[in-house]
Amino acid sequence: MLKIWSMKKEQQKAENAAEGTAATAPKKKKVTAAQLRVQKDLSELSLGSTMSTEFPDPDNILSFILYIEPDEGMYKGGRFSFSFNITPSFPHEPPKVLCREKIYHPNIDLEGKVCLNILREDWKPVLNLNAVIVGLQFLFLEPNASDPLNKEAAEDLRNHREGFKRNVRQAMQGGNVRGETYQRVLV
């Protein structure tokens, strides 16, 4: 490479002398890898009728809100929202997802943290936003008692499913379950 370089140096000197102003081109704005990937993921999104998005700033696609309105299962009739925050390290790092309401769910804690394997330990760069969204939707259809974040809710689900269902209704109406007041999420 050394030889090529020294040759190139000579050439360049000649070129620079000839062109003069070419070096002062304006700073070009380039699209970052993370943004391009998010753009691709968003344009492939299949949300169906139960989900919608909201972008507080359409120019910043790394931050948005996802709404889910389950049309079957125990959480039917509720409207739940999740904030998505994507770092410049995406897709090397998973998106940061939080549930914005205080809800009664075995896999979502009272601060909104979500226990979904692909949001943490099983995230891989080949996964996309659609996979995350399908995963969130699934949590409302099949709450999982064996991976609890809200231990009381998980116990209820495991031990008396009917009671759990009643608690879900109660909580979704903004009621009180086991001493915790939940947020009303019914539409």
Partner: peptide, 17 residues
């Protein structure tokens, strides 16, 4: 769908965008 750095020009999906 078309974007520039820091500027969303036109996105075909999702619906809100």
């Amino acid at each position: 769908s078309v974007r520039g750095e820091g500027k969303t020009l036109y996105m075909q999906s999702p619906a809100s965008l």
